[in-house]
């Protein structure tokens, strides 16, 4: 009998701090696997953001820079320009990328920096106690919208992938999920493709991953996983939005 599934080399053999059923762990493993497949571990510099995604440096066996809140794409720009031979990716949550870092992500994308961005969207600020994020769905109750998000007060949730698709500098943009077998396979494929864009120097690549936050949604892991496939996927449509080089 042979082992057909093992931990990726780029992922350290440590326990994560994530809550049970949090999709961050699944996305971490997928990113590490993609790094392994392109043999990038030795020349990768990851840029971590603020939030649950902050512990990138504890979980990945690669070099990682911790950036200020929302500034990961700006830090990644500097790293990539200073060391063009390195592989640079940012790993950000929705509170980080879609709220505090809106300016940074839009301009890094518009400049067409040759970096990859993994954006984990769980519609809430996970680490700080489940506050409302720009991606929180209408009607969703959070600790700062106890009666549910309303269109009149807070506006509609931002669809970041669609927003970035319209920018000239973006070469690849996709939205995936990791809640069922089909979506898992697709997510793996798209993350790999995004990394290939950078390896082949074809410009800015962006992958949004819809993820569950069972603790802050007040749900069991299985119910939260279901919500990704229903409510979340209804508003945030899955698919590849831009693939200019047809990789």
């Amino acid at each position: 009998m042979q082992q057909v599934f093992k931990r990726p080399l780029s992922l350290k053999d440590v326990q994560t701090h994530f809550c049970p059923g949090c999709h961050h762990g699944t996305v971490h493993r997928m990113v590490a696997k993609a790094l392994d497949e392109y043999d990038l571990q030795k020349r990768t510099i990851g840029v971590a953001s603020i939030g649950c995604s902050v512990f990138l440096y504890s979980y990945f066996d690669i070099d990682v820079i911790e950036s200020p809140h929302g500034r990961a794409p700006a830090v990644a720009t500097g790293v990539k320009r200073a060391k063009p031979d390195s592989f640079v990716f940012t790993y950000q949550g929705d509170g980080d990328l879609a709220a505090i870092g809106t300016g940074e992500i839009i301009h890094a994308a518009n400049r067409g920096e040759n970096i990859s961005v993994i954006f984990v969207n769980n519609t809430t600020y996970g680490m700080t106690g489940g506050q409302m994020a720009p991606t929180t769905l209408l009607g969703q109750r959070t600790s700062t919208s106890p009666y549910g998000r309303s269109l009149e007060n807070e506006g509609a949730p931002i669809r970041v992938t669609e927003l970035l698709t319209n920018l000239e500098g973006v070469s690849f943009a996709a939205r995936v999920a990791v809640n069922n077998a089909k979506n898992l396979m697709d997510a793996k494929k798209q993350i790999k493709k995004a990394f290939r864009y950078q390896v082949e120097k074809k410009g800015f690549s962006f992958v949004e991953v819809l993820a569950a936050c069972p603790t802050n949604w007040g749900m069991t892991p299985i119910k939260a996983n279901e919500r990704v496939g229903t409510e979340l996927s209804d508003y945030f449509k899955l698919g590849v939005f831009k693939n200019v080089a047809n990789l």
Binding site: F5, T16, F18, P20, G21, H24, G25, T26, V178
Partner: peptide
């Protein structure tokens, strides 16, 4: 593939 804690070997 889905295990968030990479606790499964196949």
């Amino acid at each position: 593939e889905i295990c968030p804690d990479v606790a499964i070997k196949v």
